[in-house]
């Protein structure tokens, strides 16, 4: 017998959409992160260039990697919630129709 999850997950019609969205957002962030690593390796001196308010590129890029992660996370959650709400509404109207 297979092992059951800690709490029943129930049906999640938004699941495939969330997985697709998650993968695309993961790829986008990975490219952003990979660029940071690549610049450090290929042209490390470029990271010393002052780009904003007396701060160099590596500091601004480092902060951006942290802040963009949070922004992407919030955007992802917004889209996921919207999709979940859509299916929930569809489910409810289906149930009403059956009543």
């Amino acid at each position: 017998m297979l092992h059951e999850p800690s709490t029943p997950a129930g049906k999640d019609p938004a699941g495939p959409y969330k997985i697709r969205l998650g993968i695309w957002m993961f790829i986008a962030y990975s490219l952003f992160y990979a660029s940071f690593v690549a610049i450090n390796l290929l042209n490390p001196l470029a990271m010393a260039a002052i780009v904003f308010a007396g701060l160099n590129l590596v500091t601004v890029y480092g902060f951006a990697l942290i802040i963009v992660a949070l922004i992407e996370a919030l955007v992802y959650d917004w889209f996921c919630r919207r999709k979940e709400a859509f299916y929930l509404k569809a489910e409810e109207s289906k149930e009403k129709g059956q009543d």
Partner: peptide
């Protein structure tokens, strides 16, 4: 940055599967 992997790829599927 590692949390991006956790959020976008692992969090929900893992929750559905594990105990």
């Amino acid at each position: 940055a590692g949390w991006i992997v956790a959020l976008f790829v692992v969090a929900e599927p893992l929750k559905k599967l594990g105990k």
